[in-house]
Amino acid sequence: MSDDEELESYGADMGQKSSTGVFEWVIVDGNRLLVAALLTAAVSVLLLGLNAFDVIAFQNANSVTRVASGMIAGTFSLVTLVVSINQMILSQEFSSAGEARDQLDGVMDFREDVESLAKVPASPASPSRLIDLIVVTIHERADDLEESVSDNRDADCRDAVSQYVAGIDDSTQRIHETLKETEFGTFNAVSAAINYNDAWQIYAGRHLYGRYEDSFSEETSEAFERLLDALRLFDVAREQFKTTYLQRELTQFSRQTLYCGVPSVLSAIVLGLVYADISGSSLAPDLLPFVAVALITVVVSPLALLAAYILRTATVAHRTASIGPMLPQKDPEEGPFDVSYGESEE
């Protein structure tokens, strides 16, 4: 397989979403409260449907009270989990004066690198605008690279670089269009950042640089270095952006779970009290299934909220598990740019 074919077959897929449609909306793109509401509604419909077909019943007081007791215990366990998550987040916020100073110095050094590469007086304070600036810088540096090889005598080199730059231009255009319409706090900005294929672009760029370095002019070599520097800055910014967003996401999840936790416990208690009468339920048999299902729906709402948030956070963590040009393949034996020891000395 030639280098051009490898660039075409692997470059378009790296960093793209692994699924589309309804499933992608449920696990990542959809509003988490809406997803949780749909999950609880599905529970209600399922229980009512099973009752309508006489698969389950709500007449046995002992069975329902045992279920209510289990629900109360489960809700308290979930609240304990939420407290643990809050402790984990808070532990990242505490630091000594020296640690805080080191963190600030690191952030300022990074911003200065962005300002130097993007040629701006000051980098944006908004994370999404900062990433957008780096994306625009990548696009401009890629164009500079292509222009620098326009008079190169090696046709294979020109074609490989042109194809590489075309892939970068296409990717940066897509993420730029998304980022300029979003604000920090919306998942669209995070989704655009985590799905940008910077790892592939660094990997392919380093390979092309190593393969055609001898035919590059000094201008081309410098253009390549500036492009790779911009891609590395995007990688760092994306990790910071993702971390900040997930901290906010988990904090919001903790707060909303506590909001749902109290009604959930109260609903489970009421469900048990409905069957506390010695003669059985205190409600009419026709109303009993609807009241029981409504109370159970409130009880499971914290669990639905947990599922909705964990689906997103786990998916984001999975898609950004590696930093830099470490590209997991579907098959461990396959991968572009197959090389062997000592090849550069031949």
Rank of each mutant, 00 (worst) to 15 (best):
M1K: 10
D4E: 13
E6A: 12
D13C: 02
M14Q: 11
S19Y: 02
E24T: 04
I27N: 09
L33V: 13
V35A: 02
A36P: 02
T40V: 13
A41W: 09
A42H: 07
A42T: 12
V45Q: 11
L46R: 08
L47K: 01
V55P: 03
F58C: 11
Q59A: 15
S63T: 10
A68D: 09
G70W: 10
I72K: 09
L78H: 00
V79D: 06
L90A: 15
S96M: 09
A97P: 01
G98S: 05
L104T: 04
L104N: 07
V107H: 05
V107Q: 08
D109L: 09
E115D: 05
A122C: 07
S123T: 08
S123F: 04
P127G: 04
I131E: 01
T137K: 00
E140W: 02
E140G: 01
E146W: 01
S148Q: 06
S150V: 09
A155P: 08
V161Y: 02
G167I: 03
T172P: 00
I175P: 00
L179P: 03
E183G: 11
E183T: 07
F184G: 05
G185Q: 05
F187N: 14
N188Q: 13
S191Q: 13
Y196G: 05
Y196M: 12
A199C: 06
Q201L: 14
A204F: 05
H207Y: 15
L208W: 07
L208S: 11
D214I: 11
D214C: 11
A223L: 03
A223R: 12
A223I: 01
A223V: 03
R226W: 02
A230F: 01
L231S: 03
F241K: 06
F241E: 02
T243Y: 03
R248W: 03
S254I: 00
R255E: 12
G261R: 07
G261N: 10
S264I: 09
S267H: 03
A268C: 12
I269W: 03
L271Y: 05
G272D: 05
V274H: 11
D277Q: 14
G280P: 06
S281Q: 08
L283G: 11
P289Y: 08
A292Q: 12
L295S: 06
V299C: 14
P302A: 12
A304C: 15
L311T: 12
L311N: 15
R312K: 14
A317W: 04
H318A: 15
S322P: 00
S322T: 10
I323H: 15
G324A: 08
G324C: 12
M326T: 04
K330G: 15
K330N: 15
P336C: 05
D338C: 02
E343Q: 13
E346Q: 06
E346G: 02
